[in-house]
Simulated assay, not measured.
Amino acid sequence: MQITGTCYLAAIGTEPFPVDISKGINGYTVSLPEGCSNVEMTIKLKDNNSQDTPTGVTWTYTKDGRLEEDLEVESDSNGGLSITSDKITALPTGSVSLHLIAHYDDKNLEFDVTIHVRELGDTEWTRSTSSEASPIIIEL
């Protein structure tokens, strides 16, 4: 299984900038930075022999946890599972557990994925003076 995606961060007074969430993945646990927005994640099956993404995969799932209402989960037309959210809480608490079943090649493959919110680190563009942050200039 492969999990990929992005989210956006913005210090006060700066334009939002993308963050690759794959750096926050440990096995089947995804760590999203507190206060992120525009989360777009995709989960796909991978063929261990060829590393290709198989086609014809359908998904069923259940979700449970504090972030359950913040995340939208749906199958996409390419055989992946799409997870999106407009905004994630600015408090480093909460998680959601996803029990996924991939239906593929007359088999049911089950996975448990956890998505949780973690605290921002000191080096993660938490200041508007960061080189990654573009200040918003308002002239009156």
Rank of each mutant, 00 (worst) to 15 (best):
M1K: 06
M1G: 12
M1R: 05
I3L: 13
I3S: 03
C7K: 08
C7G: 08
Y8I: 00
I12Q: 14
T14R: 06
P16F: 03
F17L: 15
S22I: 08
G24S: 06
G24E: 06
I25T: 12
Y28T: 07
V30S: 03
L32Q: 05
G35Y: 07
S37N: 13
N38W: 05
N38C: 08
V39I: 15
M41S: 04
T42M: 09
T42C: 04
I43S: 02
K44D: 08
L45T: 00
D52M: 07
D52K: 09
T55W: 01
G56W: 09
V57Y: 00
W59F: 11
W59A: 03
T60P: 05
T60A: 14
T60H: 07
Y61R: 01
Y61E: 01
T62S: 13
T62M: 03
D64H: 04
G65R: 08
G65D: 09
G65P: 08
R66Y: 12
R66K: 14
R66P: 02
E68H: 05
E68S: 15
E68W: 01
E68C: 08
E68R: 10
L71W: 07
V73S: 04
S77N: 13
G79P: 00
L81P: 02
S82A: 13
S85A: 15
K87V: 06
I88D: 04
T89G: 15
A90C: 04
G94K: 11
S95C: 09
S95L: 11
S95A: 14
V96K: 02
S97V: 09
H99E: 07
L100H: 09
I101W: 02
H103L: 10
D105M: 06
D106A: 03
K107R: 13
K107D: 03
L109Q: 11
E110L: 01
E110W: 00
E110H: 10
E110P: 00
F111D: 08
F111Y: 15
F111E: 12
D112Q: 09
V113P: 01
T114Y: 03
H116F: 13
R118T: 08
G121H: 11
D122Q: 14
E124N: 10
E124S: 10
W125E: 13
T126A: 02
T126G: 14
T126N: 11
S130K: 04
E132A: 11
E132M: 11
P135Y: 00
I136T: 14
I138D: 07
E139C: 01
